[in-house]
């Protein structure tokens, strides 16, 4: 990863304001941002380790541990709730066997909350491994469950 960081920085610059883009890039590459990379990032951007740690822990997106093989981000926001998202959330936890905000013990799937995907007239919505899915009902949930079992 250190090489990846070095290459990224030489392509994109190493000013402090590159921190979020770099963290995104690392997470896209490795799935998460290992704590061991923090000193490398800090040095590269001339920041303290504390600076970087504070940023990583502030943003919901950044993970410090490897995520599940599949990630289902289920919208919990009002528009989806108006269309049954609260009940769906309970169903999804049951069907996927994992609590909201957690990764299943076998590492197969993580269920994460998301607050609005901007698909507010066609909820309940989710991002399944980055792919938007709308109008989720029992049947669609079942398709998702099958998909993430793979």
């Amino acid at each position: 990863m250190e090489e990846f960081i070095g290459a990224w920085l030489s392509a994109n610059g190493a000013a402090r304001d590159r921190l979020l883009p770099l963290l995104h890039a690392i997470q896209e590459e490795a799935g998460y941002i290992d704590d061991a990379l923090v000193p490398v990032i800090a040095k590269a951007l001339n920041l303290s380790r504390a600076d970087v740690h504070g940023v990583i822990t502030f943003y919901h997106d950044f993970r410090r541990r490897a995520p599940g093989r599949h990630v289902v981000k289920l919208c919990r926001a009002e528009s989806c709730q108006a269309r049954g998202a609260a009940a769906l959330e309970v169903q999804a936890q049951d069907r996927l066997g994992v609590a909201m905000g957690e990764t299943r013990a076998d590492g197969q799937v993580a269920l994460e909350p998301v607050y609005c995907l901007g698909l507010c007239a066609i909820g309940p919505n989710a991002l399944v491994d980055g792919r938007p899915v709308a109008r989720i009902d029992g049947a669609v949930l079942e398709q998702i469950a099958v998909e993430v079992a793979a």
Binding site: V38, S48, R49, A50, D51, H53, T57, F58
Partner: peptide
């Protein structure tokens, strides 16, 4: 020195030396 930060956010905000 920038050795301290706030870790997490909201109610779980916590003073953190370096990486917690």
């Amino acid at each position: 020195t920038f050795a301290l930060t706030i870790e997490n956010k909201g109610f779980e905000s916590k003073v953190s030396p370096s990486q917690g």
